[in-house]
């Protein structure tokens, strides 16, 4: 299998890279009508045009070079990017409640590849532990990715799958369940589950985040911690949603729907 040396580049930009034999992840010196530029060639995003080449310069910033202005390019080095995330073990503590995190497709926590700027979702217990280490003080966490669907595309099929999975976990003796969910239809899924999972013996907490999890101001981590605490330690045995209260970091909210029979 041949490697894609020109990740994301097409059209005129691709031709230029090929012409001068300069690859993505290569260190390049580029001469243009506007002067000299030096840096690492980065992959091109598929949504961007084919008339520019992206360079990461030594100070860490990215810039674009207009293909029309290039008079010469040479590759002076090459170091391919490695997206591997080091695995850390989620520490299990005797006496803490067992909580299962079911993933439906959103990004609950992320890690950043500073070299390329890629945002890599953290999902396995080890990855989540790396991103939100406080979880290990709250519960013993296991995770499972049930499906990967944008929340605006969720419907009865997904609700059914979720309900069955919840039932299975309860039979296995789990102490609490967290469901990671996109914010678009979090409330629909929660309402559906309230009807579908009746007389639950354990808390079932749907959780999302308003601000994306890669940014430092994200509410993702705190929401997750609140959800884990509720799932593991509370006696609220029903389906509920856990999100942030106000735009200020003051408190989280738990919202549930009680059914009268």
């Amino acid at each position: 299998m041949s490697e894609d040396f020109f990740q994301g580049y097409k059209g005129i930009a691709l031709e230029l890279l090929k012409k001068f034999n300069v690859r993505v992840w290569g260190q390049a010196e580029i001469e243009t009508t506007r002067g000299k530029f030096k840096g690492t060639i980065l992959p091109r995003s598929e949504n961007d045009d084919d008339t520019h080449i992206v360079l990461k310069i030594i100070t860490g910033y990215n810039i674009g070079i207009d293909v029309d202005t290039v008079t010469n390019m040479i590759e002076t080095g090459y170091k391919k990017a490695n997206y591997k995330i080091p695995e850390k073990e989620f520490p299990y503590t005797e006496g803490l409640p067992k909580v299962k995190l079911i993933g439906t497709g959103g990004t609950i926590a992320s890690r950043l590849d500073y070299r390329t700027g890629a945002v890599i979702p953290a999902f396995s217990p080890g990855e989540l532990y790396g991103a939100v280490p406080e979880l290990a003080d709250i519960c013993n966490l296991n995770t499972e990715k049930l499906f990967a669907v944008f929340s605006e595309n969720m419907g009865p099929e997904q609700y059914k799958t979720l309900a069955i999975a919840i039932g299975k976990e309860i039979e296995n003796g789990i102490d609490g369940i967290i469901i990671g969910h996109g914010t678009d239809t979090l409330h629909h899924t929660a309402a559906a589950l309230t009807f579908m999972v009746q007389n639950s013996p354990i808390p079932i907490v749907l959780v999302g985040s308003q601000r994306s999890s890669d940014r430092p101001s994200s509410d993702a981590a705190l929401n997750l911690m609140h959800a884990a605490y509720t799932a593991g330690h509370s006696d609220i045995a029903e389906t509920m949603v856990c999100m942030f209260g106000p735009t200020s970091d003051e408190y989280g909210l738990l919202i549930g729907l009680l059914l009268e029979q």
């Binding site: 490695n82 997206y83 591997k84 995330i85 080091p86 850390k88 992320s110 890690r111 950043l112 590849d113 500073y114 070299r115 890599i120 953290a122 790396g130 991103a131 890669d214 940014r215 430092p216 101001s217 994200s218 981590a221 705190l222 106000p246 735009t247 200020s248 970091d249 003051e250």
Partner: peptide
């Protein structure tokens, strides 16, 4: 108005 935030660092790919 006044709002409160707490900042969390994001892990890099080097862990």
């Amino acid at each position: 108005a006044e709002i409160i935030r707490h900042m969390r660092p994001t892990l890099s790919e080097l862990g």
